[in-house]
């Protein structure tokens, strides 16, 4: 009877761990599951295996998972890749927002680490505390519970229409708020552009910076979607910002202060003209 109960407990812990959305809970749950599993081995008359599982599966494995998740002294930025703002060049990260973030990292004495993610995952990652900041052409959605930095770069949201057909946007982006009910969403801007080039979409809701990126890359890698003759309707004037979790007020204050100094020395303007000329 005890063995059956312990088996049920082991299964519950494993199912609990593997259905979490937050990685930390998953690791802790799998650790607890390992300990319960060691108990099951004891019931199956295998004390050697139980001892090894308790010492290794519970203590050491859980600990190396926790260490792999750990980011002490780092400022982790969840970002999407946008060409002149934040993008990867070989092993290095470059762009306007990267220059700002790098300087901000020196200001708060932390190493900045960028993690490429999907736009739709950013609110969850921020809320779970797995990242400190969100960047990379971040336009907040309506009703998003995040702290926002002062505006960095002004932009505009436009509706691009090349041919009749459904309209697309990046999932989780501001453009999704402007989609008609039959609109389609895509994981990131690259997939949106590919769908537009394949002719799946008649148009898209994007900001001017991503549109500029598409225009620049048009013709280079088989992305002909006749953007030059497309009809464009401006929808909304916005600005790119950084986003933080609501309870990170200290970091938010530091960021505001830092951006104010950067603007007052004229450095911000210089960076913007350098990257976006």
């Amino acid at each position: 009877m005890g063995a059956v109960l312990l088996c049920a407990l082991t299964l519950t812990l494993a199912a609990f761990a593997l259905t979490r959305r937050r990685l930390l809970w998953g690791v802790i749950g799998v650790g607890a599951h390992s300990l319960a599993l060691a108990g099951v081995y004891l019931f199956l008359a295998a004390p050697d295996v139980a001892l090894a599982e308790a010492a290794i599966g519970f203590a050491l494995v859980t600990f190396i998972f926790l260490l792999a998740l750990r980011r002490t002294g780092r400022l982790v930025v969840a970002a999407t890749e946008v060409y002149p703002l934040l993008y990867q060049e070989g092993d290095k990260i470059a762009g306007l927002e990267w220059e700002i973030l790098r300087r901000f990292g020196q200001w708060v004495h932390r190493d900045v680490e960028v993690l490429w993610v999907n736009r739709a995952d950013i609110p969850r990652l921020l809320a779970a505390g797995e990242t400190d900041l969100a960047a990379g052409g971040f336009l907040p959605r309506e009703g998003a519970t995040v702290l926002l930095s002062p505006p960095l770069v002004p932009t505009q949201l436009v509706n691009v229409r090349c041919r009749p057909g459904p309209v697309g946007a990046v999932a989780g982006d501001r453009g999704q708020d402007h989609l008609p009910p039959d609109g389609l969403t895509y994981e990131d801007a690259g997939e949106l552009a590919a769908a537009l080039a394949r002719g799946e979409l008649g148009g898209a809701v994007v900001d001017l910076v991503r549109l500029r990126q598409w225009l620049l890359s048009e013709g280079t890698n088989k992305t002909h979607f006749a953007l030059r003759d497309a009809e464009m309707t401006p929808l909304e004037d916005l600005a790119f910002r950084f986003a933080l979790v609501p309870h990170e007020t200290e970091l938010h204050q530091a960021l505001e202060e830092f951006l104010k100094t950067l603007a007052s020395t004229g450095e911000l303007e210089r960076l913007i003209t350098e990257h976006l000329q």
């Binding site: 494993a14 761990a17 593997l18 990685l23 998953g26 690791v27 799998v30 599951h33 390992s34 599993l37 599982e53 599966g57 494995v61 998972f65 792999a68 998740l69």
Partner: peptide
């Protein structure tokens, strides 16, 4: 996420 994948592999090996 690759870390989630490794957690799954850990449970499967158990």
């Amino acid at each position: 996420n690759v870390i989630w994948k490794l957690l799954g592999l850990n449970v499967a090996s158990g």
